[in-house]
């Protein structure tokens, strides 16, 4: 007696079609990445040389360089690091270790999740109104850094909280059972153990800050800057701003200069991401709970 109609052939065919479809779309992302890198390299490689790194922007494509943008990005990222990392990690510690369940903690948590989703251009509007105009910081590095810090703060807090949460509770209890105070426990055990995770998050946040363009355009950073900033009150340019500037010019030659700038930007980001991966691997070897 057999009441089943297995219909095997048809089902196997469906299965195969579905699998190949999934496979095709999955490998498409690799294809996109390769095409993007190939395209940018073809366009920009011949402009990429030491002069390009050492020259200031110019009206002539052959003389154009990214010196001021490179220095501007370095300044900006250093300032963002100094401003956002302590505050971000402190917030994460407070939310994860001190106020884990209260109503206030819940409110702040929802708030941070939403801040992480606010479009970057809105942060630009905020920076323009508060830092550039209200505090009269003008189009300075510090105005840009403050704006960018607010933007990456949620990223750092969320990543740091995850890293703190990954530290086993037994470590905290072990410390408390030795008569440690809460801060001693956090400072000596929880923070060191979560440091690799926090650092990975911080690096990702900093790469976000290096690549962001819109908020800086909002605060007026898109200007001709032919010098290296010497103080936090100086005007500045950054790599993505310079790339946007070149890419939006009509001459085809500047398209290629923009590609050269993109190669530099991508190399910087690649270095940062590689560092994050190395830290992650190191931590996996060191902490096997």
């Amino acid at each position: 007696m057999n009441n089943f109609n297995l219909n095997s052939a048809k089902r196997k065919k469906n299965e195969r079609i579905f699998k190949y479809l999934c496979q095709l779309f999955t490998w498409m992302s690799l294809l996109i990445l390769l095409v993007l890198i190939y395209h940018v390299s073809i366009q920009g490689l011949h402009y990429l040389n030491l002069d390009f790194l050492n020259n200031y922007p110019s009206r002539f494509p052959d003389k154009a360089g990214i010196k001021s943008a490179l220095w501007g990005s370095t300044w900006l990222i250093s300032l963002v690091f100094i401003l956002s990392v302590p505050i971000g990690v402190a917030s994460a510690i407070y939310l994860e270790e001190y106020e884990k369940k209260g109503r206030l903690a819940r409110l702040i948590e929802i708030n941070i999740a939403n801040l992480a989703g606010v479009p970057s251009i809105v942060y630009g509007i905020l920076g323009l109104t508060i830092f550039v105009r209200f505090f009269a910081l003008d189009r300075s590095l510090i105005a840009g850094a403050l704006t960018m810090s607010l933007l990456v703060l949620p990223v750092i807090i969320i990543a740091a909280r995850e890293a703190l949460r990954a530290v086993p509770q037994s470590i905290r209890h072990g410390a408390y059972a030795l008569g440690a105070t809460q801060w001693q426990t956090i400072y000596h055990h929880v923070l060191p153990a979560s440091l690799p995770g926090i650092l990975t998050g911080v690096i990702l946040a900093m790469s976000r800050a290096i690549g962001e363009t819109a908020p800086l355009i909002m605060i007026g950073a898109l200007t001709y800057v032919a010098f290296i900033p010497e103080s936090v009150m100086d005007p500045f340019s950054t790599l993505p701003i310079q790339i946007f500037n070149w890419a939006s010019r009509p001459q085809a030659a500047f398209e290629e200069v923009a590609a050269a700038g993109i190669i530099v930007l991508l190399l910087v980001l690649l270095t940062m991401n590689a560092t994050a991966v190395l830290i992650r691997n190191y931590a996996q070897r060191k902490y096997r709970w």
Partner: peptide, 8 residues
């Protein structure tokens, strides 16, 4: 891909 800046 997620980390490539939007300007790129």
């Amino acid at each position: 891909l997620a980390g490539i800046p939007t300007v790129v």
